[in-house]
Design a protein around this nucleic acid. Structure first.
Lengths: 135, 135
DNA sequence: CTCCGTGCAAACGATTTGCACTATG
DNA sequence: CATAGTGCAAATCGTTTGCACGGAG
């Protein structure tokens, strides 16, 4: 399994890193199309899957309908906005949880965990305040 | 918005509670059909959405795949099997996390969090062992 | 030159919706 | 008896796949 570094693969990777966001496949597709108008959405999907499999990007299967992909592969958690569905990095320590309590769960072989904080982002709070003033 | 307690709604609720599992809409549909063969899958979807909105059941949006619905509305976390995709309750304490660190995140208004432990369930571990013996 | 990767369109699985009909409150 | 809820089919959304062609190694 040799990973060919194609043009599309490079651009996808570059645009995701550049964004510093947690983009969905189609959000990324829109960005990539500007540099490479004939690229197909299927290619974006395929490559996001391959790149995350290779550990070059992260895959986020958290709340919301669409998967999101992460430019940052170091271990960290996320915060999810229930209004705009965007995801942000959570820069708190992962403490306590690796521990014993988790390992002993019901005979499971534990491979990791996902912590997702849920809330409303500053931008959406503002937007809501405006709306309420109008009434 | 008056919630009518229809026959289908009652049965859906009853079957989910009875199952003591985290079922997907179509798994629940199969069970409910036994009592009410003419019920439509759309009705199951609609009611699961309504019932979880009303706080009568929980909605689990884990891992980007099918939603699962929870008979148990008390606050608790889950453990997810990466092989069979089933979900189980995690009965460890929710400690530490409600705390200050989480609240202060980047101006977000935090409403909760989701902790999802990831691993392989006992049943799937066994199944894998068997497979490897065969080789 | 050999395959892996691509673009395209069609297929897919989960969920939602429009509509005419039914039945709850 | 008003109108929320239902069943059905079609529509939609995100994602995947089959296939013939193109380009990286």
């Amino acid at each position: 399994m040799h990973l060919r570094m194609t043009n599309q693969r490079e651009i996808i990777l570059r645009e995701l890193k550049k964004s510093r966001q947690h983009l969905t496949a189609d959000e990324l597709y829109d960005r990539v199309k500007k540099d490479m108008p004939r690229i197909s959405l299927a290619t974006v999907y395929r490559n996001l899957e391959i790149l995350s499999g290779a550990g070059l990007i992260g895959k986020l299967e958290i709340s919301g309908r669409q998967k999101r992909f992460d430019y940052d592969v170091t271990e960290h958690d996320h915060i999810y906005c229930t209004v705009c569905h965007k995801v942000n990095n959570l820069d708190i320590e992962r403490q306590g949880l690796h521990a014993k309590e988790v390992k002993a769960v019901k005979g499971y072989r534990v491979t990791g965990y996902r912590l997702e904080v849920i809330g409303v982002c500053p931008a959406c709070q503002k937007r809501k305040e405006k709306k309420e003033k109008k009434k």
